[in-house]
Design a protein around this nucleic acid. Structure first.
Lengths: 250, 250
DNA sequence: CTGTTCCATACTGCATACAGTCTACAGCGT
DNA sequence: ACGCTGTAGACTGTATGCAGTATGGAACAG
């Protein structure tokens, strides 16, 4: 009825019935549990949603996904469960899974929550950062700046995520990190249609932030991060508005 | 091997094979989707974990749970998936589900995250609260105070949760509400062993908070909520310390 | 031509079946 | 006595089967 016409690099459950990963033989010293198929399916589906292969609102038929990914319905269902709690799909009883449709309001709320969490993370990071970690921050900063110069939006986005993730790591609060990661991925998705990341100014703000962390000035770091994330949120807003008015003129 | 010896009020999937809820017949105008079994299982398991029937570290054997709840392994597995992403259980590949073991560190991190989120929620609520909502807040406040007077710890805890939840609702940020709810339930669990909620002083703080919200003073409301949640965190800490030293003397 | 009813089909939700892996214990060797 | 190896049982991970419901379209009435 529908026609996904989606291409997969490799069939996830590669032939073998037992479905154990290809690396079963390599008996490295570590116990190295073979990752269950559901994990792979989960990852694959997020990727498909983020890159737009699976469009918002689209009905995800379990059997189709299963065949496409080369597994049975079972792992697919389990992955869908998790995707629902993470906000990627909506499970409507007796109807199945639908790719979640992000609303403008929800995007704003996500950015707001992210702002709060990241601000707290910056505060904690300023308290705890070691010299070594600060050095690493400057390293990430230089990498980011280089990518801005090279005008590589994809790279800049990745570098940005990396820097923020590292700050979160420094903060030493795993629960906080989990929640940020959850929000972060969804933001990245919502954000995608209007992709173009902020350039020089964002990274200037990063530099300020790192300075504050290096000085262990928690209040300042927190303040800068708050301003930083709120600006991203504003940029999102402006873009939407611009988009809307552009649409009017068409 | 193990002996859960747990008693269930009623068999979840009550006989009927199709497993549809008992309210299938009542054809009210609304479409009233029959809630899937996995939902019921999910709720039931959280309850069992919170009330201590399922102890931290315990191995959850799917078949046992299934039989106990009167369903098959399938809905149990799906519920476990969700429980994992929500932090209630750990799924070890090829070994199964184990009730998550809360560490002291993790509890502190959760309280910290909750504090940040609730603080933000209070700020937003102060901005948006309507007269009607404020009236409702005072109502909840009175209920809570009454329960404190009546020395009903269970009731106080519930009233507390209700008040906080309502503030979150007023804030109008659904994403924020989700995250708070996620953290909240785990906190309640971790907190349980040292249950006794703070009494009068907590509710005095609530009153101050509601006043600030009623005055639409976002900064003040935010400040009060921050102090309030941090105190709860401190209370948790003190209790742990007291416990530890008490144990020493034994 | 429009609106309604009925039916076929597709898909979900749940249950069951099967294959592979982990664990513990018995038996053997040292 | 102690450690190693082999084997049986238990449990997970995955696949398949089955019943019930939602949906779209055809047939029919107005």
């Amino acid at each position: 009825m529908n026609e996904p016409v989606i291409q997969l690099p490799e069939p996830l459950g590669s032939g073998k019935r037992g479905g154990r990963g290809a690396l079963s033989g390599a008996a490295t010293q570590r116990v190295e549990r073979p990752a269950p198929l559901r994990e792979a399916v989960h990852t694959a589906l997020i990727e498909l949603i983020i890159n737009g292969t699976l469009q918002p609102g689209q009905h995800l038929v379990e059997l189709e996904l299963a065949q496409y990914l080369g597994v049975s319905r079972q792992p697919v269902r389990e992955a869908l469960q998790r995707l629902q709690t993470e906000g990627w799909v909506d499970l409507r009883p007796a109807q199945g899974a639908f790719v979640h449709t992000p609303t403008e309001e929800e995007a704003d709320q996500l950015l707001s929550v992210r702002s709060v969490l990241e601000t707290h993370s910056a505060r904690l990071a300023a308290d705890r950062a070691t010299e070594e970690q600060i050095a690493r921050l400057w390293e990430l900063q230089r990498e980011g700046e280089a990518l801005v110069e090279a005008d590589d939006p994809e790279g800049v986005t990745a570098a940005n995520a990396k820097l923020h993730a590292y700050i979160t790591q420094i903060s030493g609060n795993a629960v906080l990190a989990e929640h940020i990661a959850l929000v972060e991925r969804r933001v990245r998705w919502y954000y995608r249609p209007i992709a173009r990341p902020r350039g020089h100014d964002a990274w200037n703000e990063h530099a300020e932030l790192i300075k504050a962390i290096a000085a262990h000035d928690a209040d300042l770091a927190s303040m800068i991060m708050n301003r930083h994330t709120e600006r991203t949120r504003q940029a999102y807003h402006d873009q939407r508005v611009a988009e809307a008015s552009a649409e009017q003129q068409t």
